[in-house]
Design a protein around this nucleic acid. Structure first.
Lengths: 336, 336
DNA sequence: CTGTTAGCGCGTTCAA
DNA sequence: TTGAACGCGCTAACAG
């Protein structure tokens, strides 16, 4: 790998001049610039980003913490953040926290050690205190899918409570009154918020929210499968099942079918997230759109503006709205 | 951020000693080590990886090129590579090439500029010549899902031809003789290999491979949908459809259902890849397992061994075998 | 066992 | 418009 010295040698100028043409900084005469440029590609010179970073204290890369590297949800997040930043010449360094406090701290430490210019975090396990302390440093932090008190202007969240509400509301409007719910792990804020929305919707039609028929799952398909079986045994009268994410909805559908229940004729199912494969299911899943792409894009723009002074016209939004996506898995109750 | 100087100051030793305890290199007396360690966490010291890299010419991170950051296939690849390397304290820097020669070169340049210690590439668009040239440099390269002549010992591939063969063979063994095929984009080696396997299977039962009923898709769900419609119009006698990946199989299943065809009673469908959601489909998709996780893990171990001298017992394998995963979408032909 | 001294490749003053 | 010199934070000889 050629260094800046070899280029300056070949071009017969000082290394400061080479640095100048690289960064388009101070003025360099056209003739000199040309010489340098020629020397550069004659040598196949590529600047050493590591050395640039050390000298400039800038890496042109932003760290992205996700829970997992797989799954539609995180795939969407990674894709959209990378795409948005790449358009402006910035790079993304991705790290996974695996929904574990230690893992998340390690991942963030890694990102910090790589001297990212900013961090975009989808952190589920670390405490608010940790995030608040992190925000205290001069490293800009954007937070996705979590609202931390005092850091509202850096958080990008969807109204999960509202999402849970409209999901259940949709079932109610189809005539359902016996509605079961498979929640996510309730220690997670998004899971408990969605459930709260479900309860609120129940209350609007006079159902005692405390009597909600709830199974606590873990957001994985298998717990949707188990959830259906548990709920239907306990409450065979159920005609609709609202699930806190699409994976669990898929599992519930499989279990329902194995139990001889037709969807949606004998049982309606509603998901949450609107991940890609929800359209592949049969019947296509009625679900709540979780605007993760929009949030990722907005967080990226926030960073672009805040850190790199690349401003777009668009206003920065922090609260995103969930939306019902009507497809084929929600119908009228059997005897409605 | 505290620097190594402040630590050496606080501990009353030279910065070389601090460096030594950090890296566990030469021997340091227990007393000194203790002093340094205490100074470190008193100051909350974190080494600056950028500076370490510049000085040591080692980044402890390996670059991973994928085509996209979303999708089950790449999610599996990223997850498994990251997981394997993380176990040994190495990090992954991921970059997306978007199935475009320019994009892939840029992504690789980015990885190189970050001075990765090695590269693991899932490159689909760049030429063999480019990869060969890249391999010439002293940057270790592992290649996934592609065999480059002269670099066999760095390539980790699945036998796609064999996969296409056993998929079609499975249909034949169920009694099908009228078998359509929805291929991937044929400029891709994996797509043409799978199709070749399909043709070979046809030939074994005396069907002229040149008369294979093929629709060229693009690996996306929509082309599976379109593929079913095109093939069934042209060849209504088809009783089985072999698809070059699961996404297209899903699209074909949707289209088939909309056309009133029951699966598998009226039409059998076989996929390829065995991505996660293939189990979520209804009926669950019979498919060919593409051992992408195994390949990713092996490539990671190859890097660990080759670059970091971290050797495992296990033998390094370069060729992986596809395998039939029997589920519910393949049955006997209607009048078989 | 420990300290001193050069760099790693580049950005950025300051003079010229 | 250009060059010389210093420093970013750390590793790696080389001495002692």
């Amino acid at each position: 790998m050629a260094t800046i010295y070899q280029v300056s040698d070949a071009a017969g100028v000082s290394l400061a001049t080479v640095s100048r043409v690289m960064n388009g900084h101070a003025s360099v005469s056209d003739k000199t610039r040309k010489k340098v440029l020629e020397a550069m590609d004659a040598l196949g010179y590529k600047p050493n980003a590591i050395a640039q970073s050390l000298a400039s204290n800038r890496t042109n890369s932003v760290g992205l913490l996700v829970s997992e590297l797989h799954g539609s949800y995180f795939g969407d997040l990674m894709s959209t953040v990378e795409g948005t930043l790449k358009q402006h010449g910035k790079h993304v360094i991705i790290s996974a926290g695996h929904v574990d406090a230690t893992g998340e701290v390690e991942a963030i430490d890694f990102l910090k050690s790589r001297r990212c210019d900013a961090l975009i975090l989808h952190a589920e396990a670390v405490s608010d205190e940790y995030l608040t302390a992190l925000g205290q440093s001069n490293l800009p932090i954007a937070i996705i899918n979590r609202s931390v008190v005092g850091m509202e202007s850096q958080c990008f969240v969807v109204n999960n409570e509202q999402g849970g509400y409209i999901a259940t509301q949709a079932a109610i409007q189809c005539g359902h009154t016996e509605i079961g719910y498979i929640s996510g792990p309730l220690f997670k804020k998004d899971a408990s918020d969605r459930l709260a929305g479900h309860r609120r919707a129940l209350a609007t039609v006079g159902i005692n929210p405390d009597k909600a028929v709830v199974y606590e799952g873990d957001y994985h398909e298998s717990s949707g499968y188990a959830g259906f079986q548990a709920l239907i045994t306990q409450s065979p009268q159920l005609t609709a099942l609202v699930c806190a994410n699409d994976e669990m909805a898929s599992g519930a559908m499989t279990a329902a079918r194995e139990a001889g229940r037709d969807i949606p004729d004998s049982l309606s199912v509603i998901g949450f997230d609107n991940v890609l494969f929800s359209r592949y299911l049969f019947p296509k899943l009625t679900t709540i759109n979780n605007p993760i792409k929009a949030m990722g894009e907005m967080a990226a723009h926030w960073v672009l503006d805040k850190v790199y002074n690349i401003r777009r016209h668009e206003h920065i939004t922090h609260l995103f709205l969930p939306e019902l996506i009507e497809r084929g898995s929600l119908g009228r109750p059997p005897n409605g």
